[in-house]
Design a protein around this nucleic acid. Structure first.
Ligand code: ZN
Ligand code: ZN
Ligand code: ZN
Ligand code: ZN
Lengths: 138, 138
DNA sequence: GTTACACTCTATAGTAACTATAGAGTCAAG
DNA sequence: CTTGACTCTATAGTTACTATAGAGTGTAAC
């Protein structure tokens, strides 16, 4: 099959497939006489693997590492476990950051009601630094 | 003050300050005879405003919009409220996505114990498409 | 006066993972 | 033989910076 069909079957765009090839995530396929790429079912599996990994938000370089690990099947798989563990930590800290952000945004949202003018806006007022509203200091 | 001092006081890097100027978030300051940028306290306040907004993950173009709103102080501030509301929705959906991802990663992590070889790795097995393990079909 | 040093200037390239073109070529059908 | 769908390469754009290179500025010591 040509790249268009592979794109449809895999759910990756044509440009993404060519990009993965350029980045070394999939191997360069055979070409027709007219220089068109020709793929087989194996290519589709490789793309599916990459898609699964991307759905877990693994980076392309992590995926590359996994692929290269697959090329030495008898080595221990510890590195895979570690990668997932690291990933879990990153995701957890991102969630925490976003939850803090969410709290900040909600507090900020409460600073302004409806139908004020820009210079009276509680939100903009909160975002602006306050040089002389220092009633808390003597 | 020159850009180095502003950078220290504001917590933005020198390059970031110049970048904000190029992007139109802060106005181009006066220059010395030797072509050095010269700032005053107002510039510091503008940077503080931008920093506050960035801490809430507002994009530079959203911040630009807020700044331009501040230039017409008597218009209603509805757009500000809407921006924050939109932002809350985006953050909420990102959190949800990440929590789903977290669940997926944890489930995946359980697929592999310790000290297997790469070709026996439960994680890699799960990430790979399974062409003939179709025991669920007839 | 010159030399060392810290600072600043512009312009450019890099980051991640694509997306979107431009302009040229391929190939089958009508 | 032309139309149209497809493909090719190469390049630029996305976001919010960061990191250079190479040149110039300004001040203080010697
Ligand atoms: Zn990772
Ligand atoms: Zn308001
Ligand atoms: Zn937003
Ligand atoms: Zn494993």
């Amino acid at each position: 099959m040509k790249i268009g069909e592979l794109a449809k079957l895999s759910g990756c765009s044509i440009q993404t497939i060519r990009y993965y090839e350029k980045e070394g995530l999939i191997s360069a396929p055979e070409r027709t006489e007219g220089n068109f790429r020709v793929y087989n079912a194996v290519a589709l599996e490789k793309l599916a693997f990459i898609k699964n990994c991307r759905a877990l938000d693994l980076t392309l370089s992590e995926i590359k590492r996994l692929i290269s690990l697959q090329h030495s099947p008898s080595t221990p798989c510890e590195a895979v476990n570690e990668m997932i563990d690291m990933h879990l930590l990153v995701v957890e800290s991102r969630i925490e950051d976003l939850q803090n952000l969410h709290g900040d945004l909600r507090k900020l949202r409460l600073k302004c009601g409806n139908a004020r003018s820009v210079d009276q806006c509680g939100i903009l007022g909160e975002l602006s630094p306050r040089p002389q509203r220092s009633s808390t200091r003597i």
